[in-house]
Computed example of a mutant assay.
Amino acid sequence: MIRVAALDDIPEGEGIAVDKSITGTEDNIALLRDEDGSVWALNDTCTHETASLAEGWVENGHVECPLHSSKFCLRNGAVDGLPATRSTVAHRVEVRDGEVYLFPGEAPA
Rank of each mutant, 00 (worst) to 15 (best):
M1I: 14
I2W: 04
I2C: 00
R3M: 10
V4M: 01
V4A: 00
A5I: 09
A5L: 08
A6L: 13
A6E: 12
D8C: 12
D9E: 08
I10R: 05
P11N: 05
P11D: 00
G13P: 06
G13D: 02
E14N: 12
E14K: 15
G15M: 09
I16A: 03
A17R: 15
V18N: 06
V18A: 01
D19Q: 08
K20D: 00
K20W: 00
I22G: 04
I22S: 01
G24K: 10
G24P: 00
G24T: 03
T25C: 14
T25M: 15
T25V: 11
D27K: 11
D27P: 06
N28G: 02
N28A: 08
I29T: 04
I29W: 03
A30D: 00
A30Y: 07
A30F: 02
L31N: 01
D34L: 06
D34V: 06
E35H: 11
D36I: 09
G37K: 08
S38K: 15
V39E: 02
V39F: 05
V39M: 02
A41Q: 08
L42G: 03
N43Q: 12
N43L: 11
D44P: 02
T47S: 15
T47V: 11
E49S: 05
E49Y: 09
E49F: 01
T50V: 14
S52W: 07
A54N: 04
G56W: 06
W57S: 14
V58Y: 01
V58C: 02
V58T: 04
E59R: 15
E59F: 12
N60R: 13
N60F: 12
N60D: 14
G61D: 09
H62E: 14
H62G: 09
V63A: 07
V63C: 10
V63D: 02
E64D: 10
C65K: 03
P66M: 07
L67H: 11
H68C: 04
K71C: 12
K71T: 13
K71Q: 13
F72V: 00
F72S: 00
C73P: 02
R75I: 09
G77L: 11
A78E: 14
V79W: 01
D80R: 13
G81Q: 04
G81C: 05
L82E: 05
L82C: 07
P83A: 03
A84T: 05
T85H: 14
T85N: 12
S87W: 13
S87D: 13
S87L: 11
T88L: 10
T88K: 08
T88Y: 10
H91M: 07
V93M: 01
V93H: 01
E94D: 15
E94F: 10
E94M: 12
V95N: 08
R96F: 08
D97C: 09
E99S: 13
E99A: 14
V100P: 04
V100G: 03
L102S: 09
L102C: 10
L102G: 05
F103Q: 03
F103C: 02
F103A: 03
P104M: 12
E106F: 07
E106V: 15
E106C: 06
A107Q: 15
A107G: 08
P108W: 10
P108L: 10
A109R: 12
A109V: 12
A109Q: 13
